[in-house]
Design a protein around this nucleic acid. Structure first.
Lengths: 361, 361
DNA sequence: ACCTGTGATGTGATCGATCAAATTCGCTAC
DNA sequence: GTAGCGAATTTGATCGATCACATCACAGGT
């Protein structure tokens, strides 16, 4: 029951008959130590199963070697598939550089602390960030789900707090900090191209309400794709990110003046609604109407869904975000501060026209 | 660019004209301090925005106030919906007690460290646990996805490492440690009951291969339910957790000697395969054949799926796991060490018989 | 006046790794 | 023989909170 309290540099030194500093040298500057001494110390380290105490190291070096990540309260079924993979990727990349990920939430646990905030009330969402920072519990933050002019980015930037974001800042002004993002426009454009190759000439778009950076980016890809292929952009409908909305929007477009033969959707959830509407009308996805989504959510691959979708290289994003962040922490020369990654279309039944041979340009 | 290096107890003391220990007393034993002194110190704390340094505290008290959680490499599309919610719940519950969650993975980042392990090679999956422990980086672990006789539980138990698991140990022997689990049998039984009330008298089961504790638990609920209702258990088919398999198993059962009118599935993924097979045969889920799943995965609620499913109270599980773990850490008297929570059936179209009035017993 | 007890506050040492500077050691050169 | 030089190794101090005592002030009792 008592604390065994593992070996320390001092205890290793005692075993090997050297001082604690020599032990440190063996670990961090081996060539400063005479080979036979080193061997003796290394043996002691192995025998005693010594591992440096992370906490003590953190105190001295003033770096926790921890990256903060805020778990947003789960919204719709949309963000989830990404968050899981992203976290895994971030954790793995961080470990490769000797860091770990520390999770926190926006709702502060200890109610007593809420009062300690001074008059000028900051955004509640920032409290968690502020607290971890003040407690020196993390060295920096990984952000995700950034919005247009995300207050967190400005807040962190003002205070000189290291961070890196998944999602560009979408700000008109200069960028507060480094980010990694997916080229949504390119992803959608590739979907348009694919549908064109399947024989479609009237391609509609099902999007989100205006105002979201991500959403506008994807619409622009659709416009660009149509333009490049010499098509007049088909009809456009917008609504919030639920499959019921998707179903309604699909109906709207199909009943409209110039009904599209293919629907490019800004998200898989909306696309699923479209598929439901097609089924209701007895139309076969792919054969009668081409449909594509975005995100490659887990359900897209399921039998009975088989939704073509733009897959985001989340693992790459996670790795790059961590690299940008840790490079800042270690004072590495910042190679680049904005990374845009290309997504790739995963073609499934919902967009394949059985009788049309794919045409590669 | 230079380190502002926030306020410390000593600096607060200097501002308030007292010693660091008095500052400590104000924070941890306020009644030992004269009210006017206390006021002065509290003012300084507020003015300077002092927050105790977590790292220094950890070093002195030998507790990182961090709970380790291992991100398993994502397997199929099955576990994900749960992991996300679970992590959020765990993080939130931990924060309420002044702890945070530290993520790690099984693949060790630093390749140099692999060699440092001695001859008798431990299970690779345990290395991450061992390392964090040796580095004193965490105080305990939260486990999930426990298997029958999970080696991690025994390993941690042997070393007296505090932990709590989501998922019982399923061991025949005595339990190595505390866990929280979901009463899968009860969940499946409620699905059977529900289908019975919908008029079904021949209820089949689509399960996993024998050997998984979770799977056997759920089968037993099906058997128990049938027995209680005076039904002969319908046919049973087993296969791995993919929807393709689900489709095949559904076909097998429906073509079998005594075809069931309802299918209870051990997972949503398998259930989805069943739905696909029904659609292929022109059978309407709910009206012709009742189907239920398990997990209430995000896709179960989607239009075009509408799968009845057993929903697990993941948030409760997370909160309880954290409670069991932190109670150990703080030396709280262990109130209970095994918690079984009841899941609840979410009824959707896939199991509702349009013409049958529900009968409540 | 003296001792004692209690409440309030201050000082020293500690956790373990790290940084800076001091010391010892091994060897050559005068 | 020893001054000198570089390599090898050691000692001292530090990060900030915490614990264990030490000290101080002041009250009441004899």
């Amino acid at each position: 029951m008592s604390e065994p309290s593992g070996p320390t540099m001092a205890s290793i030194g005692r075993v090997a008959g050297v001082s604690r500093q020599t032990v440190w040298n063996v670990l961090h500057a081996p060539d400063k130590v005479r080979p036979e001494t080193r061997a003796r110390v290394e043996r002691a380290i192995r025998d005693e199963r010594y591992r440096p105490n992370r906490v003590a190291r953190s105190l001295r070096t003033r770096s926790a070697r921890l990256l903060g990540y805020c778990m947003e309260p789960r919204g719709g079924p949309d963000l989830n598939p990404v968050q899981d993979r992203f976290l895994h990727a971030v954790t793995e990349a961080a470990e490769a550089r000797g860091y770990h990920v520390l999770l926190f939430t926006t709702q502060r646990g200890d109610p007593g602390r809420r009062a300690s905030s001074r008059g000028g009330r900051e955004d509640d969402r920032l409290d968690g960030y502020a607290e971890l920072l003040a407690e020196a519990a993390v060295d920096g933050f990984v952000l995700s789900d950034t919005t247009v002019d995300d207050p967190r980015q400005a807040w962190l930037h003002e205070r000189g707090v290291p961070y890196a974001a998944f999602g560009r800042s979408w700000s008109d002004g200069e960028d507060p900090g480094p980010w990694v993002d997916i080229d949504g426009a390119a992803g959608v454009e590739s979907a348009v191209t694919h549908l064109y190759e399947q024989g479609h000439r009237r391609i509609g778009f099902v999007g989100w309400p205006t105002g979201s950076g991500v959403g506008e980016d994807r619409v622009s890809g659709w416009r660009r794709g149509c333009e490049r292929l010499g098509l007049a952009p088909g009809p456009l409908a917008r609504g919030d990110n639920t499959s019921d909305t998707g179903q309604a929007l699909a109906a709207e477009l199909l009943d409209g003046p110039d009904a599209p033969t293919a629907l490019v959707c800004v998200s898989d959830v909306l696309a699923l609604g479209c598929l439901a509407e097609l089924r209701r009308r007895g139309l076969r996805p792919g054969a009668d109407i081409g449909v594509t989504g975005f995100d490659d959510a887990p359900f897209a691959a399921l039998p009975g869904v088989e939704l073509s979708s733009v897959e985001q290289p989340i693992e790459r994003v996670g790795a790059d975000v961590v690299r940008l962040l840790i490079d800042q922490l270690t004072g590495e020369p910042p190679a680049e501060s904005h990374i845009v990654l290309a997504p790739s279309l995963r073609v499934r039944a919902s967009s394949i026209h059985p009788t049309t041979d794919p045409v590669t340009p």
